[in-house]
Nucleic acid binder design. Structure first.
Lengths: 199, 199, 199, 199
DNA sequence: GATGAATGAGCATTCATTCAT
DNA sequence: CATGAATGAATGCTCATTCAT
């Protein structure tokens, strides 16, 4: 990569990181593009070289951060040696929840966009790295000793439940702090998985 | 009620209704207060007589609309003659989903605020009418032939799942159109209810 | 006085006192008429029954407060038994300065309006109590063992100097704290008085 | 200076001059920022590129105008060939009074801010040109054939007296028109100067 | 590509004043 | 006399976007 290209990338990344920092601390509505460029140390016009507007960079950030989350969970799963779809999915959910417990600004930011971010962000980033998780999930289902019907529906239902309930439990301790709520959540997840078994 | 008070109420309601109409058609961010007052036919200053700002009226609207939804479902349940907690809850969820299928702008507006709106909006309105649903739900649990543990958690989990999954299914047909997704959703709900039974 | 008239006076005084309190704490520009009426516990329209606008009540307040100041100083002078124009004027100036040192909000409020307030406020209040001080001053000159030329000019010069210099010294300790500045000020005042002596 | 910088300076000066014109003709309270930018021929946002708000530009104007006044008087003094502290200070005061007599809007604008403006404005402008007058004054004292105690106090007292009394005399002919009041004022100034002599 | 001065539409909010009750 | 709901002009300020350099 030439020096120019390097510099280009640097500016873009500076904008990306700064926007994330400001969005999570001040909120999206209260963050102006001038705030971002000022803190990133680039000129105002430069922003428009790389992003269409504030919502463009927001969407790309959500997709990116969600990706990192699932990628980290997937990598951890491989190292864990865990087998069996039920345990594997619980492991992934648990891993992501633990990451978010330690990073509430991130949770607040992706908030309930988690789901759509995870499953549809490919469209936004242009990179297909996001589809990866879905493929990996299909692989896990394939390798399980049971067979499953309506795999898409199963994944969707689980992700919606875990995302929505986890969000409230982590941020508001409602209806219980997350550590106390986990047993209930995981029991529900296991029930949903079992209900999709065909043999 | 005197003539003045009548007029006051009329103005406030005009603002309330107009705001709802504009929020659902143009979105909250794109609705200016001047849009609201102009359409409502009152002066700009009048808005500030009744609401603190745009977000004040938004919150009050969400609480109000959510209330209406649960109240309608509760009333329909009474007329239906249905008994048994499982069937009763499914009936309520189904009723609300059907209302929202016919009123997608409303769904879009309350969106995922449904849950918090339903269970915590008392704080916002100052009226205690919102607690009503929760009380009614406790009554249903009480009257059931089974007994249940961690009733709060059960309600929370069900509402989160139905709200979050229903939202995507109705608005985006994802992972399936709502009518096709309902069986899966209701099966999951029944499993969650059963998992809370103690005897 | 009838009950109605009493009530009338009460409202007017409530407005007067409240305005003074708000003007000295929040400043005139930042005090809205609604602030005044709200704190005074009267209706908005009532304000306009007694005062033309914010500046009307401001001017009346300045005249009133300045009056009080000179009246207090005059009364104290009489009790003091001091004689001789020089000592009498120094006594009055010193008395007022001491009052203002203990009441900086008042000083800030009347600020450099002190002079005009003192000598011309009659026009504003409609009450002639303000001319009183001027008359009393003429009496002091008359009774002195010396005779003076251009008495008006002398009074004006002294009041301007004491007012302007005192203001900065009390509020900003500039060029010296008031207690350290007093000797210089009083020396200058004595020199000015002496320079007007004709015999 | 590049074309851009030139243009920047032009805009800033246009705002500065226009603000001065409007402040002196309409008064500060009645001058809206939109009035300024409209008359200056720049966009509203441009104002906020150079000034924080109306009071920022006001303060900078007072400091600037006061500077000009003292600078002009200082320059005239040098040309006059006058010597001796008494005569020099009288010359400066007289020069400034004459300038203000011909420019009553300016007098009205800087009004009683004259003193603080003269001696403390350095803080506001950031330019050290304002300290210049004070330094020059110290030089005059140094070169005088007499020696003086408490030079700061002397300057302060003179400036307060001349500023406050001059203001009323010029604008309101009170207690006398300025030309008739000058002898009294200058006599008082000379007495104050003499009273600070130590040898 | 990069800059950042300039733009000006757009918006929230305040507040003096009125007037029907 | 007193009220206070209603008004709507006035205004400060923001900020996304452009474009000459």
């Amino acid at each position: 990569m030439g020096k120019v290209d390097e510099n280009k990338k640097k500016k873009k990344e500076a904008l990306f990181n700064t926007a994330y920092e400001l969005f999570t601390t001040k909120g999206i509505n209260s963050t102006a593009i001038s705030d971002i460029v000022e803190k990133a140390g680039v000129a105002k016009g430069t922003f428009y070289l790389y992003f269409k507007d504030k919502y463009d960079i927001k969407n790309k950030l959500i997709a990116h951060k969600t990706n990192e989350l699932f990628a980290a969970a997937g990598a951890a799963l491989e190292e864990s040696g865990i087998t069996g779809l039920e345990d594997e999915l619980i492991f992934i959910i648990n891993h992501i929840i633990d990451l978010l417990v330690d990073n509430k600004p991130l949770l607040n930011f992706i908030s309930k966009n988690l789901v759509m971010g995870a499953l549809r962000s490919t469209l936004l980033t242009g990179e297909n790295s996001d589809r990866e998780f879905y493929e990996k999930f299909l692989g896990l289902v394939e390798q399980d000793s049971y067979t499953y019907a309506d795999v898409d529906v199963m994944l969707f239902t689980i992700v919606e439940l875990a995302g929505s309930a986890g969000y409230n439990s982590i941020l508001y301790n409602e209806p219980l702090p997350i550590e106390k709520y986990k047993p209930f959540l995981y029991r529900a997840v296991r029930l949903i998985i079992k209900s999709h078994r065909t043999g």
